[in-house]
Write a protein that binds this DNA or RNA. Structure first.
Length: 888
RNA sequence: GGGCGUAUAGCUCAGAUGGUUGGAGCGCUGCGCUCACAUCGCAGAGGUCUCUGGUUCAAGUCCAGAUACGCCCACCA
C-alpha cells in the first residue's frame, strides 16, 4: 500500500471530477417512487468568473443537494447561465473598442453575431468553474436564458401579460444611464450618497414693485437642470409666501416666465421653502408637471450632454454645464450662497455612472396585481425565509411595489415581441395602443389597417424579465419538449424545494420569481428561501474587483484544494451573517483535509501491516471503548442530520469536524493503535465510512477518494460512488453504560495526569503511576493499560492498597506519580485555581439552594439538578482540599 | 426620514425555546519531530459577554433606552 503522508487535492480532484461527470451521478429524472428535491441555480452571468460569492452560494446549494441525494431523494439541481444583457454587451463593446470600433460601426446584426461568438467562447467558463467547485448539478440540462426554447417562454409571458393588461407602453420619467444609454428599472438605479453642494439661486419676481421681495430663492443640488424649469413651487400652507401666490418669476439665463404652483410635496422646512420645478429631469417634478399641466422641456441628449434647448450650453456635458451655469449666475450675482450637502443619487448598477432621470417612452409591467398573491404566500408562510427577518424586508418592498420598466435600449437580449404599424402608430401618442401589435411571431399585416409596413420594436427586455421565469422556464414551460418529458418533469420537480441566494437580489429576482410563479404556474416557485451573507475581506469591506480586495476562490482551490475552500466557507457561514475572510481562513480546511487523509492512511496501513481483511461491516462484538465511540458517532449523525435539515450548515460542519478530529482521531485511534485487532479495524472502518459520509456534502472530493480507497482495499460491498451512497443512520449501541462511563472517567483522568505532569515540570518524561482503587475499576485499568500508558506517557502502572502520597484524588481512584522530588510550585498554583473556581461555583449553587424563592419558583427538575450539582461539587471540593492539605 | 442587523477571548465567529463551571478556529506561551498526520500532539494564558435601566428565584440569552459600526428602503429640492 502506498499512500502519501500528505493529502494532494489537485490530483485527487481532477480524477474524481472526471468520474462524476462521466458517470452521470448528478442526473435526475422523474421517479414516481421517490420524493423529489430540487433547486434551481441562481444563474451566473455568462461574463462571470467564479468569485467568493459564487463559491459560497453554490457550496451551500451543493451541500443541501448532496445531503438530500444521499438521503434517497430524487435530486435535481438545475444549472444554467444568464445572458446578463447590459453587462455582457458592455464587455463585448469594450472588446470591440480595442479595434477602434463602436457597435454602431458594425451594425446590430454583426454586433449580435460577435456577442454570440463571445458567449460560445467564454460563456461556459463559469460552468466549468462551478464543476471544479464540485457543484453536483445535472449538467446535461445546463440552460441559458437566451436558448431558443427559453426565449419562447419569455415571449409567451410578454404576450400573456400584455393581453391581460399587465404590460403597457408609457411615456414616463425613468432612470437613464447616459453611459449605457438605456433605461433602467428602479432597482437597477442604486442610490449612493455623494458629497455635493446645495446652491441657493435667486429667481427674479416678475413685476417687482418694491412691496415684496425682489427675488425668490430656490435651493438645488443640480443647477444645470434649471434650464428646464417650467415652474416654482411652494407649500399651500406656507404663509411666508402669500404674496407670491398666483405670481410669476423669471428663470434666469433663459428669461422664461415660470408659474408659481402650490403643492403639499414642498417641504416648508427644507431650503427656502421654494422649489424649482423641472418636469423633464426629476421624478417629483415630473409628477408636478402632470398634475399642474406644466411644460416639459428636455434639455439633454441621450449621453447627458446638453441639447439645443440649453441654448448657449448646448453640447456641454451635464457637469461641465453645471460649472458654466454657476459661473454665469455668479457673474449676475444670482447666487445667494452654497452649502456642502450630501446628495443621494442613483447610480447605474452596471457601470456606476450617475443616473439621469429622463422622460422616455418605455414598456412597463403593472406590478400591483402580481404582488397581491406574492404577498399572501409569504404572509401565510407558504414560502419561508431563512433567516426569518427577510420576510419583513420582502413584504415591505412588496407593499410599496412600483411598476417595472422592462425595456432596454441595448441590443443583447430578448427583443420585445412588439410590432408597430407605420400607418396607425403615432409615436407621440405613446399612451395609446393604436398601431401596436404584440405577438410572438411577426404579424403579416396590421389588424387595424391591413398595412404590411410593420417594424419590430428595437428594444430588448430587461435581463430580469427572463430570469424571473427561471424556475419553470428551465423546463421549457409552456411548450415543453421531449427532453423535459413533455412537462412531466416540471410537474414532478416544481415547486422547487429551496432557493439559495444572497440578499442583494431579493427584489431583482426572488420577489419577481414568486410573482411569476404564481401568475403563470399558479403555484409558488419554491418553498424555502435561504439567504446567506456577503463575503467581505478581513476589514469588513465587501470584496470587489474594483477595490482589489478579492480573494480568488480558484487560487484557494489551487493552493489548498476545493474541499478546504468549501469546508472553511461552510464553517464560517452562519445564520445569514456576512463572512469576514482572509487567506488564513482556509488553512482550517486544508489542515482538516490532511487530518482526514492521515486517519485513513493510518487505518489502511495498520490493516496491511497486520494482514487484516474485511469483507463486511456487520458489527459483531465490541467492547466499551467501541461502544463509547459508536455512541459518539450516533450523536454526530443525528446532530449533522438535524442541522442540515434546518439549513444550519455551519453547525453540521462543526459537529462533523469535532467528531472526526477530536473524538475519532484524538481519542479512539490513539486508544487502539497499539492493539489494532481485526475487531478494532472493523469498528474503525465502519466509523470512518460513516464519518466521511457525514462530511461528503461539505467535502465531496476527499470523501469520495476515501470511499474509493476503502472499497479498493477492503472487500466490502458499496455503491459506485459516495455521491449515491446512503446517508448514515444512528444505530443502537449495545453495551452497558457503566463500562462506557468508566472509559469516560479514565479519559478524564488521563487529561488530569497530563495536566499534573506539566505542572510538575515533568513534561514528556515517562514516569510510573501508582493507583488506588477497587477491584472492579482495577480490571478496566488493566484491560486498557496499554493505551492509558501511551496517552498519559507512563512507564508502568501499579495497583496499591495504600499510596505513599497522593497527587490526584478522584471519585473513583487516587493516584501518585513515581517521582521522588516534586517541584510543586506550579502544581499548587493550579490546585489553588481549581479550588477557587470550584469554590465560586459551589457558593453560587448553595446560594441558590438557600433561596426560598428559587425553591418555590423553579421547576422541580431544575431544583433536583441543582441539588445533585451541590452534592457533586461538595465532594469534588472536599477531595481537592484534602489533596492540598496533604502537601502542606 | 423609515426599517433592519451586529456588538461575546488579540482576530474571525458559535452560544434554538432564559437554568451545568460561556465554547471553537486562528494567534500567543511552554513542552514534544511518540514509527497516520509538525498541514501534528500535549498542556496553558486570555472574557466586568458594549453601556444603563427593567422583568425574573435565575439574564450573554427576554424587554426598554443609549452608544458604535454595518446594511436596506424612501419623491432629502
Amino acid at each position: 500500500m502506498d499512500i502519501a503522508p500528505r493529502y494532494n487535492p489537485k490530483e485527487v480532484e481532477e480524477k474524481i471530477l472526471k468520474k462524476w461527470l462521466s458517470g452521470n451521478f448528478f442526473a435526475a429524472k422523474v421517479s414516481a417512487d421517490k420524493k423529489p428535491f430540487s433547486i434551481v441555480i441562481p444563474p451566473p452571468n455568462i461574463t462571470g468568473i467564479l468569485h467568493m460569492g459564487h463559491a459560497l452560494n453554490n457550496t451551500i446549494q451543493d451541500v443541501l443537494v448532496r445531503f438530500k441525494r444521499m438521503q434517497g431523494y430524487e435530486t435535481l439541481w438545475m444549472p444554467g447561465t444568464d445572458h446578463a444583457g447590459i453587462a455582457t454587451q458592455n464587455v463585448v463593446e469594450k472588446d470591440l473598442a480595442k479595434q477602434g470600433l463602436k457597435k454602431e460601426d458594425t451594425g446590430r446584426e454583426e454586433f449580435l453575431k460577435r456577442l454570440w461568438e463571445w458567449r460560445d467562447k467564454y460563456g461556459s467558463t463559469i460552468i466549468s468553474q462551478l464543476q471544479k467547485l464540485g457543484a453536483s448539478c445535472d449538467w446535461k440540462r445546463t440552460r441559458f436564458t437566451m436558448d431558443e426554447a427559453y426565449s419562447e417562454t419569455v415571449k409567451e409571458v410578454f404576450v400573456r401579460l400584455y393581453e391581460k393588461g399587465l404590460i403597457y407602453r408609457g411615456k414616463r420619467i425613468i432612470n437613464w444611464c447616459p453611459r449605457c444609454q438605456t433605461a433602467l428599472s428602479d432597482e437597477e438605479a442604486a442610490h449612493k450618497e455623494i458629497n455635493g453642494w446645495l446652491y441657493y439661486i435667486k429667481y427674479p419676481v416678475k413685476g417687482y414693485t418694491g412691496e415684496h421681495a425682489e427675488y425668490v430663492v430656490v435651493a438645488t443640488t443640480r443647477p444645470e437642470t434649471m434650464l428646464g424649469d417650467t415652474a416654482v413651487a411652494i407649500n399651500p400652507k406656507d404663509e411666508r409666501f402669500n404674496w407670491l401666490r398666483g405670481g410669476k418669476v423669471i428663470l434666469p439665463i433663459m428669461d422664461r416666465e415660470l408659474r408659481v404652483i402650490e403643492d403639499e410635496v414642498v417641504d416648508v422646512e427644507f431650503g427656502t421653502g421654494v422649489v424649482k420645478v423641472t418636469p423633464s429631469h426629476d421624478p417629483v417634478d415630473f409628477n408636478l408637471g402632470k398634475k399642474y399641466n406644466l411644460e416639459f422641456i428636455n434639455i439633454m441628449n441621450d449621453d447627458a450632454t446638453m441639447n439645443e434647448q440649453a441654448g448657449e450650453f448646448a453640447n456641454m456635458d451635464r457637469f461641465e454645464a453645471r460649472e458654466a451655469i454657476l459661473e454665469l449666475l455668479e457673474e449676475k450675482k444670482l447666487i445667494e450662497k452654497k452649502e456642502p450637502y450630501k446628495v443621494s443619487a442613483g447610480h447605474c448598477y452596471r457601470c456606476h455612472t450617475i443616473i439621469e432621470p429622463r422622460i422616455s417612452p418605455q414598456w412597463f409591467v403593472r406590478m400591483k396585481p402580481l404582488a397581491d398573491g406574492a404577498i399572501k404566500v409569504v404572509e401565510e408562510d407558504r414560502i419561508k425565509f431563512y433567516p426569518e427577518r427577510w420576510k419583513k424586508v420582502y413584504l415591505n418592498w412588496m407593499y410599496n411595489i412600483q411598476d417595472w420598466c422592462i425595456s432596454r435600449q441595448i441590443w443583447w437580449g430578448h427583443r420585445l415581441p412588439v410590432w408597430y404599424c407605420k400607418e396607425c402608430f403615432k409615436n407621440e401618442d405613446a399612451e395609446a395602443n393604436a398601431g401596436i401589435i404584440v405577438s410572438k411571431q411577426k404579424p403579416e399585416k396590421c389588424p387595424h389597417c391591413g398595412s404590411h409596413d410593420l417594424a419590430q420594436d428595437e428594444d430588448v427586455l430587461d435581463t430580469w424579465f427572463s430570469s424571473w421565469l427561471w424556475p419553470f422556464a428551465t423546463f421549457y414551460w409552456p411548450n415543453f419538449r421531449k427532453d423535459t418529458s413533455d412537462g412531466k418533469e416540471l410537474n414532478y420537480f416544481y415547486p422547487t424545494s429551496v432557493l439559495v441566494t444572497a440578499s442583494e437580489i431579493l427584489f431583482f429576482w426572488v420577489a419577481r420569481m414568486i410573482m411569476a410563479g404564481l401568475e403563470f404556474k399558479k403555484e409558488i416557485p419554491f418553498r424555502d428561501v435561504m439567504i446567506h451573507g456577503t463575503v467581505r475581506d478581513d476589514r469588513g469591506i465587501k470584496m470587489s474587483k474594483s477595490l482589489g480586495n478579492i480573494i480568488d476562490p480558484l487560487e484557494i482551490i489551487d493552493k489548498f484544494g476545493t474541499d478546504s475552500l468549501r469546508f472553511s466557507l461552510m464553517l464560517n457561514a452562519s445564520g445569514g451573517a456576512d463572512l469576514y475572510i482572509s487567506d488564513d481562513t482556509f488553512l482550517v480546511g486544508r489542515n482538516f483535509a490532511n487530518k482526514i487523509w492521515n486517519a485513513t492512511r493510518f487505518i489502511l496501513l495498520k490493516m496491511t501491516e497486520k494482514n487484516i481483511t474485511i469483507d463486511n461491516l456487520e458489527l459483531e462484538k465490541y467492547d466499551e471503548i467501541d461502544a463509547w465511540l459508536l455512541n459518539e458517532l450516533n450523536n454526530a449523525i443525528s446532530g449533522v442530520t438535524a442541522s442540515l435539515d434546518n439549513y444550519r450548515i455551519n453547525d453540521a460542519t462543526k459537529i462533523a469536524y469535532e467528531f472526526f478530529w477530536h473524538v475519532f482521531c484524538d481519542w479512539y485511534i490513539e486508544m487502539v493503535k497499539d492493539d489494532f485487532t481485526r475487531g478494532r479495524a472493523k469498528i474503525s472502518v465502519y466509523v470512518l465510512l460513516n464519518a466521511i459520509k457525514l462530511l461528503h456534502p461539505v467535502m465531496p472530493y476527499i470523501s469520495e477518494e476515501i470511499f474509493q480507497l476503502l472499497k479498493e482495499n477492503l472487500f466490502i460491498k458499496a455503491e459506485e460512488s459516495i455521491v449515491v451512497a446512503r446517508w448514515p443512520k444512528a444505530k443502537k449501541v449495545e453495551g452497558d453504560t457503566k463500562s462506557v462511563n468508566t472509559i469516560t472517567a479514565i479519559a478524564q483522568t488521563i487529561k488530569e495526569i497530563r495536566n499534573i505532569k506539566t505542572d510538575l515540570g515533568l513534561g514528556q518524561k515517562k514516569v510510573s503511576l501508582a493507583i488506588k482503587t477497587n477491584k472492579d475499576n482495577e480490571q478496566y485499568w488493566k484491560k486498557h493499560e496499554v493505551w492509558i500508558k501511551r496517552l498519559s506517557l507512563l512507564e508502568d502502572i501499579s495497583f496499591q492498597g495504600k499510596l505513599k502520597r497522593t497527587v490526584f484524588k478522584g471519585e473513583l481512584w487516587e493516584l501518585d506519580l513515581g517521582v521522588e522530588e516534586l517541584d510543586i510550585k506550579n502544581f499548587l498554583v493550579s490546585l489553588d485555581r481549581k479550588i477557587n473556581n470550584l469554590q465560586n461555583v459551589h457558593s453560587k449553587v448553595s446560594g441558590r439552594l438557600n433561596n426560598e424563592n428559587f425553591l418555590n419558583n423553579a421547576s422541580g427538575e431544575v431544583v433536583e439538578a441543582e441539588k445533585n450539582k451541590f452534592t457533586e461539587l461538595s465532594e469534588q471540593l472536599k477531595r481537592l482540599k484534602e489533596l492540598k492539605n496533604a502537601f502542606k
